[in-house]
Nucleic acid binder design. Structure first.
Lengths: 355, 355
DNA sequence: ATGAAAGCGCTAACAT
DNA sequence: ATGTTAGCGCTTTCAT
């Protein structure tokens, strides 16, 4: 006696040794504990309407068998997965990892599992990830849309009842959904105004591809600040391309070697800032610099780097909370949340123009 | 005609407007296409043994209905989820985000979904995440064990047939499983030897809590390097605590203000390096510095920061590949993979001792 | 090539 | 308080 129980025949039999030993089910537990199936279900689900005696019996059997509820079955039956999906561009980018961290905290507190995947800025990949998440029947989605997202499949899923919140960029293709964004225009404007206030008139701008919402907004803010100050925008001082690309360093070198080199640089995103910092060290040049998006060690550089800080953690937290509100059934019109930036003065933005 | 099909009664009915409109199933598709259920299943699963005519019919119906296969049902039936779980400490830490990125790439290439959660170095949370992943029946797990992991539940899951690979630290509690680690001892030793070679004899060491495997290994490497060089280890020059803690900056200040201040500092992890860099800038002190683990902008500091680089991406890639080998049925004895570090010389480690 | 039917492991009525 | 039963939506024999 002791182990001649209702074990499925294939478990730990020599012939089957080492094969995926299909795990015990609630039925196995019920048999072992000598109770009904639903009693087991109740105990596992924390339903209180079970006598202490039977409950103990069940818990005992669970322990002996190493039972773990199969969530696939639970999800199928209940029609909800208690999970949400997050599509970001790149986990390695601190902006997105902070965003993801905040979303994870909210999800964790709600007992929801977070599925995160990186689109690597590839619209095809974004699409594949979103559809995969939907096939897994996530309760909702938080998405950083890729620049060229054709919105059709998103709209379909939205119509099918999957709540979505878009972050860092507005919903693509005029989709009507919640979104949480940084005030890119205002932030860029304030950063450039800061440089102007310190006497600069030749200010270069290094952004990202113009097809990216945030990139183009920031360039717009840059232009606006100049115009308001009565400074003519010089297009040769604007470089819009992926910071990782070859041309970036070359564009900088060209500007610095020009007839009227810029005395200040506005780096419109964290990767631009880093590339520029590296290049400026190499060239031993020290123009004034303001970066968009704060970064670790900005205060340990010499001089410290003045930045327009945005708040990725806040974006993530607000987006997740809004998403759960929708999941809980909130029906109102879609929200657009725009987050103010904050200028953090550290030294690099206050360097006066070289005379 | 046109929409009087076999729709479940509750879909898009006025009374139910806006409620989770339960999505169409394969049955709905079959009815609409006028074919059998299994034909739909075959088409969706890419089974070729379906006539082109019927296949087209099915795909048409799928499009019209916006059908997406319910993976919960599929998983339940098939007994596999095509997903793996990854438990890291903190997504925001570049070490872990690079690790996660590499795992994601391998999983993506295998059509497996990656579930990532952060333990925040909390053993309870680690446990909850692991059990959650197991309830979802992930095909396998990659785990950074928390320092105080009691290994029992891990062993149980392992015995239940869940493949596991441990990263950055060996399997806890003598569990017999694959692992992928950095050569922490050797790396620390080489970093400290580099400082010694540049004439330093008073070398401080800032590590993490000693209960962390990698932290204690690195301190061991530090001690070993000193001993081999015939330098007496001064315990007042060793600080082992979470870099985020209050005491860290104070410990540094105390050492620098001491009778025989260190002329060099060994920072045993990336967060220590960053905290130290910040503090040294504040104090305007420039002792020689070697950090363990490379970081962005290490080359843009002045001087550039010399580091013992480890390769989190490699760790992640190797761990994921090993995991999938196990998932595919590989049965051999467990592997321990140890990755060499590389010293990257940038300036801060070559500062001579102050005279 | 196609369809009918069984059943994966669970939850939620519905009995008792 | 407890047990019985009917599915959730899919895959997979097994017939045809």
């Amino acid at each position: 006696m002791g182990h001649d129980k209702a074990e499925p025949a294939d478990r730990s039999s020599p012939v089957n040794a080492g094969r995926p030993p299909s795990r015990p089910t609630m039925n196995d537990v019920a048999a072992r504990a000598g109770v009904g199936l639903s009693t087991v279900s109740r105990v596992v689900s924390g339903d209180t309407r079970v006598s202490e005696a039977r409950s103990a019996l069940v818990r005992q059997a669970i322990r002996e068998l190493g039972f773990r509820r199969n969530d696939s079955a639970r999800q199928l039956r209940r029609g909800a997965t208690e999970s949400i999906g997050l599509v970001i561009e790149d986990v390695v980018d601190p902006f997105f990892s902070h965003l993801a961290q905040a979303v994870e905290e909210v999800a964790f507190a709600r007992n929801s599992l977070l599925l995160t995947s990186s689109s690597t800025r590839d619209a095809q990949r974004t699409r594949r990830i979103v559809l995969e998440f939907c096939a897994r029947r996530v309760d909702g989605l938080i998405i950083t849309p890729s620049e060229s997202d054709e919105a059709e499949y998103l709209r379909e899923e939205l119509d099918a009842g999957v709540p979505m919140v878009f972050v860092d960029r507005p919903p693509p293709g005029g989709i009507d959904a919640d979104s949480v964004l940084t005030d890119d225009f205002g932030g860029a404007r304030s950063g450039v105004e800061h440089l102007i206030a310190h006497g600069h008139r030749r200010i270069a701008c290094f952004s990202d591809r113009d097809s990216l919402y945030s990139a183009s907004e920031r360039v717009r803010g840059y232009r606006h600040a100049l115009e308001v100050a009565g400074i003519t925008v010089d297009p040769t001082l604007i470089h819009s391309a992926t910071p990782e690309s070859e041309g970036f360093a070359r564009a900088l070198a060209r500007m610095l070697a020009g007839a009227e080199p810029p005395t200040a640089v506005f780096a419109a995103n964290n990767r631009s800032t880093i590339v520029l910092l590296r290049e400026l060290v190499r060239h031993e040049m020290r123009p004034a610099l303001v970066g968009f998006d704060d970064f670790e060690l900005a205060d340990a550089m010499s001089p410290g780097v003045t930045v327009v800080a945005q708040f990725p953690g806040e974006i993530g937290r607000i987006a997740a909370e809004q998403l759960f509100r929708r999941i809980d059934g909130a029906r109102g019109p879609s929200h657009l949340t725009s987050l103010r930036t904050r200028l953090i003065v550290r030294g690099s933005g206050e360097v006066p123009p070289a005379t």
